[in-house]
Amino acid sequence: MNWLSKQASDTQITHGQRMWLYFLAAVIMFLLVFPTLIVIPMSFSDSQYLEFPPEKWSIRWYEEYWETPRWINATITSLQVAFFTMLLATPIGTMAAYGLFVSGSKLGRYVFFLLMTPMIIPVILIAIGTFYVFGKVGVVNSIPGLVLAHTVLAVPIVMIIMTSALRTYDLNQELVARSLGASRIRAFFSITLPQIKFSIIISALFAFLTSFDEVIISIFLSGGGNSTLTKQMFNALRDYIDPTIAAISTLMIILSTTLMLGAQYLGKQD
């Protein structure tokens, strides 16, 4: 029996009959991934311009990135902002998800929806609004301002992950712990937290990436010495086209993919 006529699953459908599905999936994956991956060969080009395929190979654009203080400063800013966003959004989103899960109040649905709005309304609107408010308060072009704005975007993501993690969690465990002598806080930290910790780490990674990859708010709210990497890249694309962008993109893809794979791996443990 060859592979084509073997059963593909518990059903009677064979791999041969599923061929079209495999082909479709391959096409979709190619269309999704290829435009992203094309920057990788481009970044190793020796040319002055973005070109594909490169005629000559070199790592000069990686050196360019490493030796330009503008890029390094922006990278440090982005990492700082992403780190603090993660530090703020993870506990806030987790506490919100936990609180709504425990309360069971009818108002909870509306609160959940309210906290989700940053995911639903266009980011450009958030950016414009925040820009004016922060302008009045005087936190435009500052790292704290950027962290706050990014936290608004990251909280809903943390909430979604934590809400689904808690959905399968049996809250009776906390009741038992309390009857056995644990205070409410103790019950949360010794019983609930260890069981949702992988989801918390995953949501922290996502919060980090949300900030690190974010462009629109960064364009409005960061500038001067506190420009993020994404803003600096946007400016560079506008002003002069230069394969350094491709090199930085490649590095960002590597970082994002590593974090995602880490999240996937942890997700399986939970």
Binding site: Q173, L175, V176, A177, R178, S179, R184, I191, P194, Q195
Partner: peptide
């Protein structure tokens, strides 16, 4: 008196053992 100060042992329908 809060539950953790009542010194009451409790068994739930679904056991609620700590899986970790």
């Amino acid at each position: 008196t809060p539950p953790h100060k009542r010194e009451v042992g409790m068994v739930f329908q679904n056991y609620a053992l700590f899986p970790h």
